[in-house]
Design a protein around this nucleic acid. Structure first.
Lengths: 227, 227
DNA sequence: CGCCCTATTGAGACTTGTCAAGTCGGGTGG
DNA sequence: CCACCCGACTTGACAAGTCTCAATAGGGCG
């Protein structure tokens, strides 16, 4: 899939998509809910993967740190996103809550068993895994090919896309500049200057450090997809 | 999983791992072989995904191009690697042969059916998918956090790791400098200078543009993993 | 032997990182 | 209620890294 096509409106596949009422009920029986305070950790890199999670409310952040201390943010996760679906025996990254959040937890073992019995469920999981890989490939493309202000547009576009309906143009930046920098492979100063540049050029407006509005969506798109 | 852990010796999971003789035979019946000349395309981005491939001989390259012409190489694929396993309805990238190659082709539909009936096969596919995601996450980390010469070490380490047993220190660079540059998010000039720097520092030796030897594996490792 | 494609090397421009100073805003304590 | 404080963000000046453009070298093949 090309970087462009992320713009397709994905109807946000869930594991429930197309399941029978009976199957959905069985799945429901597995689910428990967990509430997270801002800053709280959901799980840690290298710990055994025992559950799959779906975000119900709030925003989470997936990150990876090297022994020498630098870190790479792998994703910002929204309601409807899944965590832990494609993993191996151990989690690939650390996950923490950027805001107060509620996640649904599904124990991995019965979830896998149920996949054996429901082709549709298995298919849904496969789709979600594909989406995660596609997202990661987009990120590789962005980090490999784009300049600072283009990477910022890449993020703005991702956030506006997934943000609840109405005013997708006004964006709440829940995360810190450091989080953004670590996501885009930049420094906070460069991120800050990139925002400044976009504002000077009239492409976005910055109300506060954590609220921006996209004035010219086409240009943002164009920069986000620029190679 | 941390960037470090890629160094674990993966016993190269295959879809056959742990299958019964009967299952293996059924799988064999699905497989056909396909020979590729150097430079030939195996499949194209955006075309419907109909098969899964395993490389038997040779080296392939996975790449993605944007409409504006720049491209990102997503991976160099060795014998034993799978292509198309985690995909969606359409292939995510274009795949071509860097050398003469032989691939095994498995039609997707019967392959998925068989997964429904063999939990072990499904588990193998899941593992392989996890490896692919892990590889991609490593790449994100490298592009986001590393300098040019560190990225080159990142590549050298990957190649030495997967290269047939004995002299993993001598590395054949089958691909062009442009391919390397597009994989690492650099220009060919910067790649060339990075090689030069590593050579001047006595970390590698360069016999020809396409043959290098790692003189100090520890340093290469260290640079490859540097954050 | 000569040609062509690829890779290397050099000089200068541009982008990003680093270090340091200054601003903004929310929260606390006087 | 206001002053202060602290963290987060912005801005500036400079250094370092990478890109661009251009010239040169090297290797394979006719």
């Amino acid at each position: 899939m090309s970087p462009q096509s992320t713009r397709e409106i994905e109807p946000l596949i869930t594991i429930y998509s197309g399941l029978s009422a009976a199957e959905a009920a069985r799945l429901d029986a597995l689910v428990s809910r967990r509430r997270l305070d801002p800053g709280a950790y959901l799980l840690h890199q290298h710990t055994p993967a025992r559950s799959v999670f779906m975000i119900q409310e709030g925003m989470l952040m997936l990150e990876r740190s090297s022994s020498t201390g630098r870190r790479q943010v792998m994703a910002f996760s929204h309601p409807g996103n899944y965590i832990g679906i494609t993993h191996r025996a151990h989690y690939e990254f650390t996950v923490s809550a950027l805001t107060a959040a509620v996640v649904q937890e599904i124990p991995l073992k019965p979830f896998l068993t149920m996949q054996d019995e429901s082709p549709r469920l298995k298919e849904n999981v496969r789709s979600i895994g594909g989406n995660i890989l596609a997202h990661t490939l987009d990120q590789v493309f962005a980090l490999g090919q784009k300049k600072a202000h283009e990477r910022v547009c890449f993020l703005l576009r991702q956030l506006s896309e997934r943000q609840a309906g109405a005013s997708a143009r006004r964006i709440e930046l829940v995360m810190t500049r450091q989080d953004i920098a670590d996501y885009l492979g930049l420094t906070i100063e460069t991120v800050s200057r990139a925002f400044g540049k976009l504002k000077r050029e009239g492409i976005i407006d910055i109300f506060s450090a954590h609220t921006v509005e996209i004035l010219n969506m086409d240009t943002v798109e164009e920069l986000a997809l620029a190679d």
